Simulated scan of single mutants.
Amino acid sequence: MELTEELALRALANVKIEPRKFATIYVYRSSNDIFKALVVTILTQNTNDRNALRAFENLVRLVGDVTPDRLVDIDEDTLANAIRPAGMHRIRARKIIELSKVILEKYGGDLSRIKDLPLDEAKKVLLELPGVGEKTADVILVNLGKSTFPVDTHITRISMRLGIAKSRNYREIQRAWMNILTPDPGRYLEVHLKLIQFGRDVCTARNPRCSVCGFKEVCNYYINNVKDKA
């Protein structure tokens, strides 16, 4: 049986999304500010959203309004200490200071122009910024209502187990989901978030809860490793 959008939506129907468990969407919806969303997304790299949000909130307490002009001249050690909960705090501090400098120099401290750019142009702007890779750019873009599908470690694991991707290649997995789903930014964001939460709660890295999984009938992992042993 093939994985369809209908089956995916049914399997994810009971997954509840709490914005505070997703740092980027929480910060962006609270502030409507692309720079703040970008900073917290950089803080999520190689850590979880809870730690990233703690680090971002420490940063808010330190500087008040998180803006490029407030961060560009901040002492690196002070910034690193504030964002310590996210891990790799010294590397991230340098990235955030460099990011602030570039945004001030190239865009006058305001990234709002990318909201009105076509997807490819907006992504190009983001990818040229320090500390911004493909996933970080896509996370920002989908939150801006652009038609892209970010892929994280949970989505990669789920995709490999389902068999809709043959490798961990970011773009292969992205294309697989975008081919399955209705081409709509709202649908992409919804499924992106629900898959992450599903990966946290059900399709976990160790001991996945296959007995309560709605993807069982199309999941290679379940069919090949669990079904006959259940």
Rank of each mutant, 00 (worst) to 15 (best):
V60M: 01
I34M: 08
W177C: 11
L59D: 03
T78I: 12
K124Q: 14
L119P: 06
L193C: 08
D77S: 15
A205H: 07
L129A: 09
G109W: 01
M160F: 06
L99D: 02
C210L: 09
D184W: 03
V202I: 15
R29C: 06
Y107P: 09
R206C: 08
W177F: 15
A23M: 08
C210H: 08
K106L: 13
T78P: 04
R171V: 14
P208Q: 08
T4G: 11
I97Y: 02
T44P: 00
G87H: 03
M88W: 06
V142P: 14
G163Y: 01
I196M: 09
L127P: 06
A23V: 08
F149R: 07
D116Q: 11
L7I: 14
S211L: 14
C210I: 05
N225S: 10
K229R: 15
E57C: 06
I155E: 11
G145R: 04
V60K: 02
P118H: 01
V202W: 02
L144M: 11
N46W: 03
E2R: 14
K135R: 07
D49M: 03
Y222W: 01
P185F: 01
E134K: 10
L38S: 02
K216Q: 15
P130E: 03
F198C: 08
V66I: 09
R61S: 14
T67Y: 03
N169C: 01
P130T: 07
R92I: 10
G64I: 11
F35Q: 04
S30K: 13
Y221G: 04
G87K: 03
A176D: 08
A13K: 15
N224S: 12
G214S: 13
V151F: 12
I158W: 00
I180P: 00
A55P: 06
I140H: 03
L181A: 11
N58H: 02
R187N: 10
S159E: 02
R61Q: 11
M178C: 08
L129F: 05
R206P: 05
P150E: 06
R175T: 07
L7S: 12
S100G: 04
I74A: 02
R187I: 15
A176Q: 04
K123P: 06
T148Y: 03
V102D: 00
N14C: 10
K106G: 07
L144R: 10
L99G: 02
R187Q: 12
E76R: 15
K166E: 13
V139N: 01
D77H: 10
L162I: 14
N207G: 13
G64P: 13
V212L: 06
H192W: 08
L193R: 06
V125S: 00
P118M: 01
A176H: 05
N225F: 09
E121A: 12
T4M: 09
R10N: 13
Y170Q: 12
M160H: 06
L129K: 04
A137N: 06
V27T: 05
S211Y: 09
K101R: 14
L189E: 02
